[in-house]
Simulated assay, not measured.
Amino acid sequence: MKNVVAFIRPERLPQVKQELFARDLFGLSVTNILGSGQQKGFTETYRGVTEEVNLLKKLRIELVVQEERLNDAISAIETGARTETEGDGIIYFQEIHNVRRIRTGEPL
Rank of each mutant, 00 (worst) to 15 (best):
D88S: 02
R23I: 02
G37M: 10
R100C: 01
G48M: 04
I102P: 12
V49P: 05
G89N: 12
L56W: 07
R82V: 01
T85H: 07
G80H: 05
Q18G: 07
L20I: 06
L63W: 04
K2S: 00
V49M: 01
L13G: 08
K57D: 15
S29V: 11
L59G: 12
K17L: 09
G48P: 10
T85W: 01
G87P: 15
K2R: 14
L28M: 15
F42R: 01
M1E: 13
R69L: 11
V4G: 09
L59E: 14
R82F: 02
I33E: 05
V53Q: 02
R47S: 05
N71C: 04
G27A: 13
I90Q: 02
E95G: 03
E68T: 06
E51P: 00
A81T: 03
I91P: 11
V5K: 10
R9G: 08
E106V: 10
T45G: 02
D72P: 00
I90P: 05
E44M: 08
R82W: 00
K57W: 12
K40Y: 04
R12N: 10
P107I: 09
D72I: 09
G48N: 03
P14L: 07
L13H: 09
T104H: 06
T79S: 04
I61E: 13
R12E: 11
I74L: 12
R47T: 00
V16P: 09
G105S: 11
I74P: 05
G41T: 00
R101C: 07
G80F: 00
L28F: 15
L108A: 07
P10E: 03
V49T: 11
A22W: 04
M1F: 09
E11Q: 13
I33G: 06
E52A: 03
R12M: 14
E62D: 15
Q18H: 12
V49N: 02
F7E: 06
R69K: 13
F26W: 15
Q66N: 10
Y46S: 00
L20C: 04
T83E: 13
S29P: 03
P14I: 05
E19Y: 11
R101M: 05
I91F: 01
G41N: 00
L34T: 08
I8C: 05
N3I: 08
D72L: 13
L20H: 01
P14T: 02
A6E: 12
E86P: 02
L108M: 12
E62Q: 15
G37I: 06
G105H: 12
G89Y: 06
L34S: 06
R23V: 02
S29F: 14
V99N: 02
Y92G: 06
V99H: 05
E78I: 13
I74K: 11
